[in-house]
């Protein structure tokens, strides 16, 4: 199963890269002239060159050779040069991507854990007062990320000053692997993470709750009771199986969280890809847009693969299927 998924992801990656290559070359008219016109006069030679490279103009090569060349550049990590920043796209991304991956990673894992644990309890103790959590969580899920982020920022950040806001860490500490910085990082990350978790937790919670209710009817849960196991262990028997669909959905959810997280980054002025992408789009900085697109695609694919491996580890039945 894992191998099949892996090849699927490889094909997806290839399609994404190829589309990324073709898209600018398909643009009608002469985008280069338009862009150069936009840059209001101060066009350097490098900028023109960067634009031409991105659109495959003036290379005097056929499409196939360009494609091969594109792959070559890609494999050595060369994503072209940003038009507006005049720096290589790869180095621009290098400073932004870790923030986004960190933010999304932490939020997704946290949301998954919180949702799964509460969903387990909601399912087991269904009909109890815990059920009142459900409408609350659904409400937060219904509110758009952007809106929730703004409200949270204004109320808890700007007005109540419970959390520091804007940026990823305090300007008064120097980045590095020391305690002050990590602490500042966590403090500044709290609100964006809370926003993303609030918006996405309901899905995990309800999914887990419903699966738990299904599992409770299973014979092996009855057997766990019949064995005189303490309640905690009985719940674990059910939860261990109920979590499988959630893990299977993890891959799907990651893609959704990414789009939301980019918006949240904008709200909180987080130095991740979200802000970068907005700037790039506004300035029509095609090489940068392409680079961001590629990185997001690859990250989501990698995360999917991780989620699949996780599932594979959790469900022994998939392992024998693979062997057959």
């Amino acid at each position: 199963m894992l191998l099949r998924r892996l090849s699927l992801y490889l094909v997806t990656a290839w399609v994404a890269i190829t589309v990324n290559f073709l898209l600018p070359r398909m643009m009608p008219g002469n985008p280069v002239q338009q862009l150069i016109g936009k840059l209001t006069g101060q066009v350097t030679v490098q900028q023109v060159r960067a634009i031409e490279l991105a659109f495959g103009i003036g290379l005097h090569q056929n499409l196939w050779d360009q494609y091969i060349g594109y792959w070559h550049q890609l494999l050595v990590g060369n994503l072209g040069v940003s038009i507006t920043l005049s720096t290589p796209v790869s180095s621009v991304l290098q400073s932004a991507v870790p923030w986004t991956i960190g933010l999304i990673g932490v939020s997704t894992i946290l949301s998954f854990l919180v949702g799964t644990v509460t969903g387990t309890l909601l399912g087991w103790f269904r009909g109890s007062r815990l059920d009142s959590l459900i409408p609350v969580a659904t409400f937060f899920q219904a509110v758009p990320y952007f809106f929730l982020g703004t409200v949270v920022l204004l109320v808890f950040g700007s007005n109540l000053h419970w959390f520091p806001v804007l940026g990823a860490y305090s300007q008064s500490v120097t980045p590095g692997w020391h305690w002050d910085f990590v602490f500042s990082l966590v403090r500044y990350g709290e609100l964006p993470v809370i926003t993303i978790v609030l918006s996405s937790v309901a899905g995990w919670m309800l999914g887990m709750r419903n699966m738990m209710i299904t599992m409770i009817a299973e014979d092996f849960v009855l057997m766990a009771v019949a064995k005189g196991l303490p309640r905690r262990k009985v719940i674990m028997h059910a939860a261990r199986n109920a979590v499988l669909p959630s893990v299977a959905n993890l891959s799907l959810a990651i893609g959704l969280v990414v789009s939301g997280a980019l918006l949240v980054e904008l709200v909180f002025n987080y130095p991740g890809v979200g802000d970068l992408l907005l700037q790039a789009v506004l300035n029509e900085d095609y090489p940068l847009i392409q680079g961001i697109f590629l990185v997001i695609t690859m990250t989501v694919l990698a995360a999917n693969l991780l989620a699949d491996v996780f599932y594979f580890v959790l469900d022994p039945r998939t392992r024998t299927e693979a062997a057959v």
């Binding site: 014979d219 092996f220 057997m223 019949a226 196991l229």
Partner: peptide, 26 residues
Amino acid sequence: ELRAIRWSQVSIVLQSALNALNPVLR
């Protein structure tokens, strides 16, 4: 009291062992 008695004094075997054994545990 029930937990103490269960399995140590009364055990049970169900019709379908496939469902009675937790599928993800050895």
